[in-house]
């Protein structure tokens, strides 16, 4: 297992050490290698606190966090983790290239390799044209892409993404989702939190839903979303009359009303097919493919 949380609890205390709030309450879950895992929940449900404990930024009050079999605070484990926070607090006086190169340096990469990875990542995130502009002038979406490049520059084996599509336009969102699937395909484990449930449903293998600091539900996305008391038929090439006849026959057979309607694509799919018809296909940076 890449991540194992065992009865994890976090109680925040005030100055006099009196408990103020139990943010996480006995959470247990595990994430396997190459899995895309979604952590969902309303505001205040304990998602961010869980992520911070998983990253070693907060200490659990009780319970155990294990990442790659060790403590997330150990330098060896940190070298295998990438993190994209919800808010991209980048150093405003750096350019995009310097920003990514700075995190490459902190990851201990040799200068030449850091420069090459930075170039590849800026190309992958479509920031090559703005690579030498200060990030203080970037839009939220551009800043997110710089943050994403910074998270990936160390070639992490576990990528933790907090609201990864927040602030991105539909094209950027699609690219992030593609990126997540490609990373998972190359063996990277991805943990993401998001309020945009459609995004989670599109890319996650498994999800956990938190409520009031505890685990409310978890499992494979397909299992959780499947309706167990109904089936759906797709009739390619069928006209309205044919569909109505089949519906009538089926209704008679199962003894319940059956409806037939023309399927439609989602607005997101329509938008993407309209605006990015000629856009190049998203490709993973070469060093991430190895």
């Amino acid at each position: 297992m890449v991540v194992e949380l065992d009865r994890l609890t976090k109680v925040f205390r005030d100055f006099w050490l009196r408990p103020v709030v139990k943010a996480v309450d006995g959470l247990s879950l595990s994430i396997g290698k190459g899995e895309v895992f979604g952590l969902l929940g309303p505001n205040g449900s304990g998602k961010s606190t869980t992520v911070k404990m998983l990253l070693g930024l907060l200490s659990p009050t009780s319970g155990r966090v294990s990442v790659f079999g060790g403590s997330p605070r150990s330098v060896a484990v940190k070298a295998r983790i990438g993190y994209l926070p919800e808010l991209s607090h980048l150093h405003p006086f750096l350019t995009a290239r310097e920003c990514v190169a700075y995190y490459a340096g902190l990851s201990g990469l040799p200068r030449g390799e850091a420069r090459e990875r930075t170039r590849q990542l800026l190309e992958m995130t479509a920031l090559s044209g703005a690579a030498d502009r200060p990030v203080s002038g970037f839009s939220k979406g551009m800043a997110r892409r710089v943050g994403l490049a910074a998270a990936l520059v160390g070639r992490p084996e576990l990528l933790v993404m907090d609201e990864p599509t927040s602030g991105l336009d539909p094209v950027g969102t699609r690219d992030v989702k593609t990126l997540v699937r490609l990373l998972a395909g190359s063996g990277v484990t991805v943990l993401m939190t998001s309020h945009l449930l459609a995004d989670v449903a599109d890319v996650c293998d498994r999800v956990a839903i938190m409520s009031h600091g505890a685990l409310a539900a978890s499992g494979k996305v397909a299992d959780l979303l499947a309706k167990t008391d109904a089936m759906q038929l797709d009739l390619p090439g069928a006209g309205p009359e044919t569909a109505a006849e089949i519906a009538k026959e089926l209704s008679a057979r199962i003894g319940a009303p059956v409806t037939a309607r023309r399927p439609s694509v989602s607005l997101e799919s329509y938008f993407l097919s309209t605006v990015s018809r000629d856009a190049p296909e998203f490709r993973l940076a070469p060093f991430l493919q190895k």
Binding site: K78, Y83, P85, H89, G154
Partner: peptide, 16 residues
């Protein structure tokens, strides 16, 4: 930067 993600990003790197 204390407590913000900017410092967190530094602290998460394999560097004391």
């Amino acid at each position: 930067a204390r407590g913000s993600s900017r410092l967190s990003l530094d602290l998460l790197r394999p560097f004391p």
